[in-house]
């Protein structure tokens, strides 16, 4: 099974993880890989955390990634990086969006948003941290934050031979192709 690669996209409902993982899995399947993608629906729209798992290779059996098995994890939110770190492979890579979304217990002052997440994680694994939201806003559309992160992820995955910009064109809303491609390129520069 060594040739099967495991990717995790984790975040909070509404951050656009679903579109990013759709583009990723479409690109991989067009390139001829066997692909499985798994997500948990249900309560994400009501403030819960969301995760999408993508596995690809010559032949993929399990649709889900086990602990210690992810080659790359992209955390769309900082605390989610902490939540999912144990899924990372010992020599895996993590891309973290330096962005905080407090959960309800934190908002209500019952719990505190953990401090020093990045300081701790940076010693644990190969980690790239940047503010994807700011990059997207500078490009002119803060909603492309997910594509900035996708750009970083694909660079970190290092898979040659896929025209990702073409896949993005085919999968984003009409009229938003160019801004998304800019976002994708800007993300790739971050890792």
């Amino acid at each position: 099974m060594s040739e099967v690669k495991n990717i995790l996209l984790v975040g909070v409902g509404g951050q656009g993880t679903i579109l990013a993982s759709k583009i990723l899995s479409e690109g991989l399947s067009q390139a001829g890989y066997d692909v499985k993608m798994s997500e948990i629906h249900g309560m994400s729209q009501r403030g819960g955390n969301v995760s999408t798992q993508i596995r690809f290779g010559e032949k993929v059996y399990s649709p889900i990634v086990g602990k210690g098995e992810a080659d790359v994890i992209v955390a769309f939110e900082k605390m989610e990086a902490l939540r999912w770190i144990e899924y990372l492979k010992k020599d895996g890579r993590m891309v973290i969006n330096d962005f905080e979304i407090p959960s309800v217990p934190i908002q209500q002052g019952i719990a505190k948003y953990p401090e020093g997440i990045l300081d701790e994680l940076v010693h644990k694994a190969r980690i790239s941290v940047f503010k994807a939201g700011d990059i997207a806003a500078e490009l002119g559309n803060s909603k492309t934050m997910n594509i900035v992160l996708l750009g970083a992820l694909i660079k970190a995955m290092d898979i040659p031979g896929i025209d990702w910009e073409e896949v993005i064109r085919a999968n984003v809303k009409k009229g938003f192709e160019e801004i998304n491609i800019k976002a994708f390129r800007a993300g790739a520069e971050q890792v």
């Binding site: 210690g68 605390m79 902490l82 939540r83 899924y87």
Partner: peptide
């Protein structure tokens, strides 16, 4: 068991809530 990366800090739960 697969070897995992662990952190000391704990993530706060993110329970679903009424919008």
């Amino acid at each position: 068991s697969t070897e995992t990366v662990t952190a000391e800090k704990e993530a706060v739960v993110r329970p679903p809530t009424l919008c």
